[in-house]
Design a protein around this nucleic acid. Sequence first.
DNA 1: GGCTATTCGGACTTTTAAATCCTTAATAGT
DNA 2: ACTATTAAGGATTTAAAAGTCCGAATAGCC
Lengths: 149, 149
Amino acid sequence: MLFSTATGYALRALAALPEDGTYCLAKDLSSRLGLPGPYLAKILQGLVQADILASVRGPKGGFRLTRPAHRITVGEVVTAMEGPDAMDGCVMGFPACSGEHPCPLHDAWSAVKSQVSTSMTEATIRDLQLLDIRHKKEAKDRAPNSAQA
Amino acid sequence: MLFSTATGYALRALAALPEDGTYCLAKDLSSRLGLPGPYLAKILQGLVQADILASVRGPKGGFRLTRPAHRITVGEVVTAMEGPDAMDGCVMGFPACSGEHPCPLHDAWSAVKSQVSTSMTEATIRDLQLLDIRHKKEAKDRAPNSAQA
DNA sequence: GGCTATTCGGACTTTTAAATCCTTAATAGT
DNA sequence: ACTATTAAGGATTTAAAAGTCCGAATAGCC
């Protein structure tokens, strides 16, 4: 993967939150997604500090998005998780590599970076929700009787 | 960086080896490149097992390429270091992401992957040597008197 | 032919990321 | 006010990467 596992978990969790402003429990998210519970909880805390999630404690509490899902970009989440210069530097780690002294992968990688950056600023959490829904729907279509065999 | 630091070190070390079949000391390489000596040595060992380097122990020993530099591709080195499926899987770590259920970055990332893969199988260690030489030459041109001020 | 210096090879330690646990604080319902 | 519930935050553990150290092998010398 291009990013850390924590970033992947963050994106999956955000995509799994309900679209109405309902508060959702960390525990529910982790069990639904099959992710390590306490670890996910910590990641969610980070997203609260990044103003992507809001949280309330106590009964009926939980986490929810601070904005509608289509207003939160994937890039924003990645930046919050990985820091602003996650994709800087040479692909191969060549210190000498630069625009003036490009390594053999420099141009390909630059193209890649701008392409991925653009996609990340265009893609939103809403798009990830759609992926998830589509996936589940088709699984259901494949086996319409919920009982096995 | 897209790969581990070890992979970067491996590529830098290979590019720094002499083109004639002369054996070269791990220690020399590390001091020349400013890399942690024993760690580089371990990486070189791995490259020996991958049949990219040959080594002999004892005085006058060291490491050398098993083939001319233009016959060793960057991709081969990366595979040796990172394993064959270093670039598999979804960019964001979405398990549901696939060709049929693409995540919003799927196409951009697929394009990237094939682009980088192609570049990696075309680029050879020889190309990295050239980068290095060019870099040094220009540094020399900037300061023709080797003494500082 | 054995001795010694040199250099690789593999086991060992340190650091960092990933994941867990536990205590504290806040809130809703009783 | 009290209790149950849930996030917040720190302390701890585990796993993996990064980095270090000691023993095996070879060449040259006496």
